[in-house]
Every structure is written in structure tokens, then in C-alpha cells.
């Protein structure tokens, strides 16, 4: 598995996949995509990187513990739901704002943050599983 070509290509491949996953995540509201799919793509990217370069470098690259990323995602999703409390609407009701930045209309919503939360949960949990299994393998 750890051929020179693969090892050289893996970081680029992985980073491209992560970029793609973010793209899929953000366009999810209007086109096929979304947090679950994006998260799975990112997790695969990390898996590829891990297979090529080893668990230690993945851990270094991630900086945070994957479970912490997952927890952050859950917190973000929950908080984006809690925000509706301040507007007197039921928990998890979507709230929208469309600020104009540099002449571009931006659609911001709690729903988007919720989806980002989903993304992080999926990335974190699956990466953590994969890394744990792989580490065991080496040890």
C-alpha cells in the first residue's frame, strides 16, 4: 500500500477531497449534497491520508482529537437550534439572514450551521473509528 507514488499523491488527493467535501456540504441546500455526504467524503480523504502516511501524521494534521471535532459538531448543531429561543420560535426553527457583503448577496441561516454541525460529527466520529482501528493494527 505504501508505495512512493501513493505516498506522494495522497496528501494532494486528500486535500482536494476535503475541499470537495466542503463544496458538497455548502451547496447541499440547493443541489445534491449536504452534511452527511460531505462528512463521509472528508472522512474518506482522511482515511486515504492515513493509509498512505500513517496515523501519527494524520493526528498531527488534524491537530484536534477527532472525537473533539465530533463533539464540536454536535454542540454547533444544538446551538444553532437553541438560537431560535431568542426569537420566540420553537427549537430548531430555521432562521435566515441575507447580509450584502461586497455587493454579493449571502444566504446565512441557522440551518446551514446545523448542516456544518452534522458534517463535523460525521467526520470526527468516523475518523476516530478509523484511526483507532489502524493504530491497533500497528501496535
Amino acid at each position: 500500500m505504501r508505495t512512493v507514488i501513493f505516498r506522494t499523491a495522497a496528501p494532494y488527493l486528500a486535500s482536494l477531497m476535503v475541499l470537495f467535501s466542503i463544496f458538497v456540504l455548502l451547496r447541499g441546500h440547493n443541489e445534491p449534497g449536504g452534511g452527511f455526504i460531505g462528512g463521509l467524503i472528508a472522512a474518506s480523504a482522511i482515511a486515504i491520508y492515513g493509509i498512505a502516511c500513517g496515523v501519527a501524521s494524520v493526528r498531527r494534521a488534524l491537530y484536534f482529537h477527532p472525537m473533539a471535532i465530533s463533539g464540536f459538531g454536535l454542540l454547533l448543531a444544538a446551538l444553532s437550534g437553541v438560537l431560535s429561543v431568542f426569537f420566540g420560535v420553537p427549537f430548531l426553527t430555521g432562521l435566515w439572514a441575507t447580509p450584502h457583503l461586497f455587493g454579493v448577496e449571502l444566504d446565512l441561516s441557522t440551518v446551514m450551521f446545523f448542516d456544518i454541525g452534522v458534517y463535523f460529527v460525521v467526520v470526527g466520529a468516523i475518523t476516530s473509528i478509523g484511526l483507532a482501528l489502524e493504530e491497533r493494527e500497528r501496535g
Binding site: G28, H29, N30, E31, P32, G33, G34, G35, F36, P66, M67, S70, G71, G73, L74, A77, A78, G81, F91, L92, G94, W96, D107, S109, V111, F114, D115, G117, V118, V121, V122, G124, A125, I126, S128, I129
Partner: peptide
């Protein structure tokens, strides 16, 4: 405000379900 109906159902109409589900994913992890 979403054109992908599936995604709208997941993150908006049935958001509470999804919140529960991602919690399950995390607990499994």
C-alpha cells in the same frame, strides 16, 4: 429556502430527528 428537498427535510423540517441521529453517530464513535 432550499431547493434540495431531501436536504431541507433532514436539516430543517425534521432537524430534531437529525440532531438525535448525529448524537447516535457520535456515541457509536
Amino acid at each position: 429556502h432550499g431547493r434540495n428537498i431531501v436536504n431541507v427535510i433532514i436539516v430543517d423540517f425534521r432537524g430534531l430527528d437529525t440532531l438525535g441521529e448525529i448524537a447516535v453517530v457520535m456515541v457509536a464513535g
